[in-house]
């Protein structure tokens, strides 16, 4: 463990920097406004971060594999609307509705992957089209009528705390999913294949990596996590509405980029994405304290992404080393 630490300090990895950044923001804001570090507020932030974090699991995998998933917002929204519409506020119905939604979400992701891997449609085009098609269909299907409120069981998962320790349920949901994501990424053949495909498709193919299968699986996972986030988000919002997925296009990609993954694929880790999700959420938390409006947040978001990708740029590192 020690060589890992000293190496990390000598030439800090983007992941380490992202966590340091998150810590820095947290400490600084807490000093300025002590209420920020209040356990209740922290756990609210964690719950918000968890949604971005869950969507970003799939986004991380897709980007590591050399693609990008722009279909996340309305896939998430579709899953959310389906949840409330199909359960009609009944807890019992969740038992069949949720698995069905998750399977369909993964299936839609797989369709993205199929077109990208086998029909050579550029990822941006395919996932973009999927996004707008889902959006249109969702408007058509709902006809603007709000579905009934979310079943209480889901509301408990998204908003509840575990009474004995006072920690939000969502924290454990996120931790469990993060653990699975990290194991898949590091310990499975699929994870290795994903990095290989994202690094160099030709090498991967010639080395016997199932390139198409790996790509399709990555997009299917992204569909799954977006769908899951949609289901859980209905619990948090106590309802579903059109447009609830919109922020997650930007935040999921931003979290991956801030976490140090290359948008070209082949590098990065969900470990970094977690830090990215935390940073983005902490920045949201600045708004009320500094009385910032949505415009300022967007400026800060953009600047943080630029800063994060710039410090990871080999060009900039070379420049400073020369100084």
């Amino acid at each position: 463990m020690i060589p890992w630490l000293t190496n990390g300090l000598r030439s800090p990895s983007p992941i380490l920097l992202a966590y340091l950044g998150a810590l820095l923001i947290f400490v600084a804001v807490s000093l300025y406004s002590p209420g920020f570090a209040h356990p209740a507020h922290v756990s609210t932030l964690i719950v918000i971060a968890a949604f971005t974090g869950i969507v970003a699991i799939g986004q991380t995998m897709v980007i590591v594999g050399g693609g990008i998933d722009l279909s996340v917002p309305w896939l998430l929204n579709s899953a959310a609307v389906a949840t409330t519409a199909l359960t009609r506020s009944s807890d019992a119905a969740l038992i069949w509705v949720v698995p069905m939604i998750l399977v369909s979400s993964a299936g839609i992701g797989a369709i993205n992957g199929l077109a990208i891997a086998l029909l050579r449609v550029p990822p941006i085009v395919m996932t973009l089209s999927m996004n707008v098609m889902l959006m249109g269909l969702l408007f058509i299907v709902t006809r603007g009528f709000p579905p009934p409120p979310t079943p209480l069981a889901l509301q408990w998962i998204a908003n509840g705390r575990i009474a004995t320790i006072g920690l939000p349920v969502m924290l454990f949901v996120w931790l469990a999913l993060a653990a699975i994501a990290l194991v898949v990424e590091r310990r499975t053949a699929f994870g290795r294949y994903l990095y290989a495909v994202g690094s160099n498709r030709t090498v991967a193919r010639l080395s016997g990596v199932p390139v198409a299968g790996t790509t399709i699986a990555a997009y299917a996972i992204s569909g799954f996590t977006a769908g899951l986030a949609g289901v859980l988000l209905t619990g948090y919002a106590k309802q579903s509405y059109l447009g609830m997925g919109d922020p997650y296009l930007f935040t999921s990609i931003a979290a991956v980029a801030i976490g140090g993954a290359s948008i070209l694929g082949g590098s990065g880790s969900y470990l970094g994405t977690i830090a990215g999700a935390l940073i983005l959420t902490l920045l949201t938390g600045l708004l009320p304290i500094f009385r910032l409006d949505a415009g300022a947040l967007k400026v800060i978001y953009g600047a943080v992404i630029l800063f994060a990708v710039a410090i990871a740029s080999p060009q900039l590192r070379r420049f400073f080393r020369r100084e």
Binding site: T188, A189, Y195, A196, T202, V203, A204, G208
Partner: peptide, 28 residues
């Protein structure tokens, strides 16, 4: 361009084509 993942460790390159043989219960 065809043989190596240049940005990956020697270890990952060596076993890349043999992973299915080295996997147990889904884990490497």
């Amino acid at each position: 361009h065809q043989g190596l993942l240049l940005a990956k460790p020697v270890r990952e390159n060596v076993v890349l084509a043999a992973l299915s043989r080295l996997t147990r219960f889904g884990l490497i």
